[in-house]
Design a binder for these strands. Sequence first.
DNA 1: CCAGGAGAAC
Length: 540
Amino acid sequence: MSPALLPKHVASVVKYQRDPIKALAMFNSVKTENGFKHTLLTYKCMIEKLGFHGEFEEMESLMSEVRMNIDNSLLEGVYIGAIRNYGRKGKVQEAVDVFERMDFYNCEPSVQSYNAVMNILVEYGYFNQAHKVYLRMRDKVVIPDVYTFTIRIKSFCRTRRPHVALRLLNNMPSQGCELNAVAYCTVIGGFYEENCQVEAYQLFEGMLEQCICPDITTFNKLIHTLCKKGDVQESEKLLNKVLKRGILPNLFTFNIFIQGLCKKGALSEAVRSLDGVRCEGLKPTIVLYNTLVKGLSQRGLILQALQLINEMLDHGCSPNIWTYNLVINGLCKMGCMSDANILTNDAIAKGYLPDIFTFNTLIDGYSTYNIMINSFVEKLNINMAEKLFREMGDKGCAPDSYTYRIIIDGFCKTGNIDSGYDFLIENIEKGFIPSLTTFGQVLNCLCVGHRVLEAVGIIHLMVRKGIVPEVVNTIFEADKKEVAAPKIVVEDLLKKSHITYYAYEVLYDGIRDRKLHKKKLPTRCSHDRGTRSLNVDGTV
DNA sequence: CCAGGAGAAC
């Protein structure tokens, strides 16, 4: 007998399976296990998983299922999870819908549900709707808790009414709700947001006097508000206060400070604070370094930024493509396009593959696309090269003959003959004349793949486009020319080593084959480029 | 189960 399958086992598998759909398949398959029945726990985990990954259809259908199998009054946690996940993905209406349907499904929302939906409404700026939910909550005689107050405080702060927020804070004790540091700091942040340093600081001191001290998370949020505005000094003042209370700064704290210092241009101080990080026994992370690299690059301190990259390597922290993007962007802003290109190639050479942001940065440099595409082709990362090629068109930056050459080259090297062929045709269609090397490459690939029809088609296309050795033009009789020209082209290609001897043989036989000669090429759909289809002669 | 945590270019 196999050991019994327990709900907690299923729940943990669901939790640790990365792929929500795979988790769902497992979840469904255990239903047939002898004696196993899903519980509130397993349903909750599965619904949470689906919602977290934005699989809302599956999530909703599982919610219908759980309603049939579990006492509906126990499902509040499930609904709150769904509300949160809809909120995380910006689906405010859907979040509200879940909330609204709760009592219809015999689940009376508690204060937590009201809070969850109110918070989403406030986060997305639906302040009036949030207030309506609050009024309904009072109507239903649901008692607000400290979370409710904090959400309402936040709402007042977001609508730039910190004084109203303060009044609410002060009313909390009389409503039987104890103040805590989160509620306090939300108000304090609201004052700082409106540049009311005096009120904010007084309130901060008042909070500490009541022996209410923020934890590092809450504190970080507060100084983030300040540092974003460039007020590092005030942040330091606050930090010194909480340090005395035994609060320890963490990497978030340092990063926020460094951002603030960079913002006000105190770059050397910002760089020095790396030592402070280490003094605290913390190990600077890539995020921290990148913050500094960004600050330095934005101020045009490129050499220092590059020096910092070396330093991070010395400390066992590898830069990433973001790191390079920041410096590349700095160079572009300074107008040093060629240096930006050099650095980009340098990054590629070191194995840091440029991403979409690299190109947004470099977009001004007009030949940059070709450099980039070439780099990718050399790395045989042809997908990225093609993506760039498409993007280049979208940006109104027309590919030139060279672009085609390198990209066709890339496809041939990676054995993607369909794409190589399509690009060759597209190249010609755009009015460019590909080089014989390019023709040769595609022809070789086609012949190796026994794609004689297309290969021969290309030879005829070359003839029609006049891409032929000079000698062909000395043949005056049209029918003689028609027979001789393809042969001459193929021989010329072999002579100049653009095609292999094998390809030559295949082509030579192919052009003599009358069936092939007369046969029109089948219409090919370009797989990934819309519905346009081409015949080999370039007609659509 | 509900409030409060650093991340990038245009």
